[in-house]
């Protein structure tokens, strides 16, 4: 039996179309037409203990709604969820003791008081013993460098600092599962790396099962062996990242801006034949390539050495592109 079991899970929101303008507003007072919006549409999956799973999808694809149902915030319209024997919404009081949750965009700490006071409040709410509390704080401090931050009010912390505190807070009560919604959103490179390193240790050393949603494919690449892709409420893919890469050519692109107008002859560069070339206009051209075949560093080196380049931009595949790619192939299988 898996730790997380999800069967045919759906969530339908009721919305209504607002009529516009003054007259429309007056009409809205008296008559409204409601419409169903399927945010999550009959998805099923299971996650085993100790896994670290990435859950990705574009904005509004249904990621957050799924997480909110898994954590007991939202009541499913239909379908079943079982996590560690609990039904999240129904058993919320006991269930929430066994999970930790971090929303990247919102803190769970109390805004106006010092971080350590929030921690002590949480300690009390979750009934954590003094010994366990001290031990865990010590462990987290090793990676997250919390000590300096503990006596600052949350509102004065930077986004990265706040995220570190939030991560620690979510693990104070030793949960068996950690849910993260966009944990790296808005963070700079160093802070991102810090968070990833911490998550890896939490998963490997503390044996916490982790489910995280993200926009950022590099989060997934560095952390998760398994990913699930959701789009328009439906599960498009569930499997290993490597498998996805194998099936989809993951294209990256390099955009060049030239120092002076001119025509570039790609053949003269002696590039791998798999690289696609396009001259966008007199000043700019584009290389589309597969990172697995040609490392981006190599391509950039060749290009910069042989062309009068003013600016180079490297763009990785985005989640939106992967989803588009899946669609254009008519599904993954």
């Amino acid at each position: 039996m898996s730790l997380i079991e999800v069967r045919n899970l759906s969530k339908i929101f009721k919305t209504f179309d607002r009529k516009e303008g003054v007259w429309g507003g007056i009409q809205n007072l008296f008559v409204r037409q409601y419409r169903d919006l399927k945010a999550v549409d009959a998805i099923s999956f299971s996650i085993d203990q100790g896994e670290m799973v990435g859950y990705i999808g574009a904005n509004g694809a249904g990621k957050s709604t799924t997480i909110k149902m898994l954590t007991g915030i939202l009541v499913p319209t239909s379908g079943a969820i079982k996590v560690g024997g609990y039904i999240p919404f129904r058993d919320r009081n006991s269930y929430t003791r066994t999970i930790g949750v971090v929303f990247g965009q919102r803190t769970q700490l109390w805004w106006d008081i010092a971080v350590v006071e929030s921690f002590q409040l949480l300690k009390k709410i979750y009934n954590v013993s003094d010994k366990d509390y001290q031990e865990r704080l010590e462990t987290f401090d090793q990676v997250l460098n919390l000590k300096r931050l503990l006596h600052t009010p949350v509102r004065k912390l930077s986004l990265g600092q706040r995220m570190r505190c939030d991560l620690a807070a979510s693990l104070l009560h030793n949960p068996m599962i950690l849910f993260l919604d966009e944990p790296t959103i808005g963070l700079d490179v160093v802070a991102k790396e810090n968070v990833r390193q911490f998550l890896r240790r939490v998963n490997q050393e503390l044996k916490v099962t982790v489910l995280l949603t993200t926009h950022d494919l590099s989060d997934i690449e560095e952390l998760c062996r398994r990913i699930m892709i959701i789009d328009k409420g439906r599960l498009l893919f569930d499997g290993a990242l490597a498998e996805l890469r194998e099936r989809l050519a993951c294209k990256s692109q390099v955009l060049l801006e030239l120092k002076e107008p001119g025509k570039v002859n790609p053949a003269a560069l002696g590039l791998n034949s798999d690289i696609e070339f396009k001259q966008l206009d007199e000043m700019r051209c584009q290389f589309i390539f597969d990172k697995r075949i040609v490392p981006s560093a190599e391509l950039i080196k060749i290009v910069v050495n042989s062309l009068p380049v003013r600016d180079v931009v490297l763009e990785d595949t985005t989640i939106e592109e992967i989803v588009r790619e899946i669609y254009s192939r008519g599904g993954i299988e």
């Binding site: 303008g21 003054v22 507003g25 007056i26 007072l29 008296f30």
Partner: peptide, 16 residues
């Protein structure tokens, strides 16, 4: 002024 007008219209429960 028009926006204020529309904003209040948006809340029908409060209106009644």
């Amino acid at each position: 002024a028009r926006i204020a007008f529309l904003q209040i219209l948006a809340y029908r429960l409060r209106y009644f």
